[in-house]
């Protein structure tokens, strides 16, 4: 075997419904998240986009009453199988949250957090890994002289790129992003979008966004979700290449949404 193997992995969602207690929040989802591509999930508030995303790394397990029906898999591994090691799953499926959530520690320690969890590497290796992650998140130039400063001193946009660096430092297979730019200014947003476009070369990227232009600019595949008025459950309206979704939507709801007439 080679010293290294490609890491980006396909995630598949098959006939999946997601429940909060007795309430079916999301229904009948069939999706395929391709490696080396950015898949954007769009749709109006409350349509279950985030619930969908948060079920991919089982971070929603923490919510009381949350339940999954159907099959979600990472490569050929069943994410919700009883034998699945949730901790290892989350190590392989990284996540960036809506609000930048750096730990109240130094910039360096934030990026090193995931790397030092189980088998802390040698100092020199660790420094190299932190640098690589910060370079990859286009933050190195801005922070290389203040790695020991508190992460909270960074601007919002820098904090979010730091969180991305933190997430990719452990080299996950998949990167989930839950409206990563909703708390950022346009310039920071552009930087993060450029970063996402770069990151897809290494990972499978899934991003939830409210921002139509962002989906259009940064993604290859777009998933349009909406709430079914009949049973209030979110479901997929349309999936397609981003260009098609925005220029030639097949479903009237998609057309209305991407042209800004509702949502």
């Amino acid at each position: 075997m080679d010293a290294s193997t490609p890491s980006a992995t396909t995630m598949t969602v098959k006939d999946t419904s997601l429940f909060y207690g007795g309430f079916r929040a999301v229904k009948d989802i069939n999706l395929h998240f391709r490696p080396h591509a950015v898949t954007a999930i769009i749709g109006s508030s409350g349509c279950g986009k985030s619930t969908m995303l948060r079920s991919l790394n089982r971070i929603n397990d923490r919510v009381n009453g949350f339940r999954v029906e159907g099959t979600i898999s990472l490569g050929d591994q069943d994410v919700y199988a009883p034998t699945t090691d949730v901790v290892d799953l989350r190590r392989r499926v990284g996540m960036v949250f809506q609000r930048p959530n750096p730990f109240p520690m130094s910039i360096f320690d934030n990026v090193a957090f995931g790397l030092t969890l189980y088998a802390p590497p040698k100092r020199a290796d660790l420094e190299m890994m932190v640098e690589t992650a910060l370079r990859a998140s286009a933050l190195w130039g801005e922070v290389k002289d203040k790695l020991r400063r508190p992460a909270t001193e960074l601007s919002g946009g820098q904090q979010q790129r730091l969180c991305i660096a933190r997430a990719i430092a452990t080299r996950p297979d998949v990167l989930l992003m839950d409206e990563p730019c909703s708390a950022l200014d346009p310039i920071s947003t552009l930087k993060v979008e450029e970063l996402i476009a770069e990151l897809k070369r290494s990972y499978t990227v899934v991003i939830v966004t409210h921002n139509m232009q962002q989906a259009a600019r940064a993604s290859d595949v777009t998933v349009m979700m909406n709430m079914d008025e009949a049973d209030r459950a979110g479901h997929v309206i349309e999936v397609g290449a981003t260009d098609d979704i925005f220029t030639n939507p097949q479903h009237p709801q998609t057309e209305a949404y991407v042209s800004g007439r509702f949502g």
Binding site: M1, D2, A3, S4, T5, P6, S7, A8, P121, T132, A133, R135, A136, A138, I168, R171, E198, L199, R201, S202, Y203
Partner: peptide, 17 residues
């Protein structure tokens, strides 16, 4: 991001894993 960085991130270090 230069191609080296991309290369590193796109691969799994088997020994490390």
């Amino acid at each position: 991001m230069n191609s080296d960085t991309r290369e590193i991130l796109a691969t799994k270090d088997v020994a490390w894993e």
